[in-house]
Design a protein around this nucleic acid. Sequence first.
DNA 1: CGGTACGTTGAGTCATATCAACCATAGTGG
DNA 2: CCACTATGGTTGATATGACTCAACGTACCG
Lengths: 236, 236
Amino acid sequence: MKQHDIFIPFCDKCALETNSIFKHLTRDEAEKLTYEKDFRHYKRGDILYHEGNRISGFYCVNSGIIKVFKTGLDGKEQIIRFAKPGDIIAYRSVLSNEPACTTAKVIEDCQVCFIPTEILISFVKSNPSFALELVKLTCHELGEANSYITDIAQKTVRERLAEVLIQLVTEFGLDEQKYLKISLTREELANIVGTATESVIRLLSEYKTDKLLELNGRKIKILNIKGLEKISNVFN
Amino acid sequence: MKQHDIFIPFCDKCALETNSIFKHLTRDEAEKLTYEKDFRHYKRGDILYHEGNRISGFYCVNSGIIKVFKTGLDGKEQIIRFAKPGDIIAYRSVLSNEPACTTAKVIEDCQVCFIPTEILISFVKSNPSFALELVKLTCHELGEANSYITDIAQKTVRERLAEVLIQLVTEFGLDEQKYLKISLTREELANIVGTATESVIRLLSEYKTDKLLELNGRKIKILNIKGLEKISNVFN
DNA sequence: CGGTACGTTGAGTCATATCAACCATAGTGG
DNA sequence: CCACTATGGTTGATATGACTCAACGTACCG
């Protein structure tokens, strides 16, 4: 028996800690989930699932960070979102019963629970308030997607990069020295913003000149959030 | 009593005809819906709801066309989607319990049913398979939003305009003379594509030169769909 | 008949992409 | 241990897609 088998987290506990959607399950359901799911480890660079494939279940992140992206023309990635502890991924394809429209790749080593489709469906059917929460979650994500469409369509790259940095601060936070907790390559940043790697590099160094941030290799130290907000034109 | 009151459509019938989500309701639920809903007429230019407002229900389109858009910087519209008979709108805000993130404006005179939030919630709770269908619908729309993000981020305006035209053909069809059934201003086209009105005009006349379409004022006659597909770079 | 909304065209500008060269780092295999 | 390679980061030069601005035409409407 491998060591990690011992540490399979109980879903009811994990759900509360990570604030995942499963906190809306009943005690029995959470137990069933703990029993039925599969606990897995992945390393940076590993792929959980591929765009275009049918998948037999979805994932709940226990630790680590995963990027979810679509592959566009010439294989250029468009990062749609990140998943961190408590988040679930691939549920869209599972629920709409369509092949995966994205690929999920590990950015920071992670532990995830794999949950078979039928379990999710059965919870939706047996637990109306869970169903409602799931609908809420999806609708919320849809609202964010709509915002992002508007942003990409209407804002400049300079504005969007600043906005993305703010979002990353909001979602992953800063450490004690004000460094962004998530570490991304310039190319990955470009693939969120929807621009060229070189443009990201130039803009970052422009922000640096303007004393909005400092750069230490891949680590980004945020000096002036207000300044970034001003650039990004967010009033929401 | 105004004449239209006589013609309030029965939901079970309408649901089958327009292929709306309510076809998954039970007979009793459909009756309840017919009884509780409010039937309304709107003219071109009317606004059903405004971005930022809380709304107390959602709409099911019986006839006509509605555009759903977000207002970006300088008041520029970004059209997110259209709603035609059978489609429901504003359900996102209702279900996520957030203020409307879009505005809905009538493009072609329409008749819609207004359905109070509580009814929808009660159906989600009482009818698991309806809930599941609703989740499916939302997830499907989310998938489309993700695709659109990738497109806008990676494709040129020329490619996107061609793609939008194809989508409009798919969604609204052509009449006997191959004219696109939905009629939009150049500005509206620009607001779907996410570009300037002038760019749309120039590109349309370029397509025309290439014999892909003909222009008669606002009416667009599609001559060569394959050609448009080639330009748009869609392989999906 | 003037007003308003929409459509069209041309000219100039600018943000951003592209292409190319180069450096730094780390991991690999002989 | 060193050459080798891959990956990521940076910078400069150049090209160009798309926006902006401005002028003007057209059609419909009260």
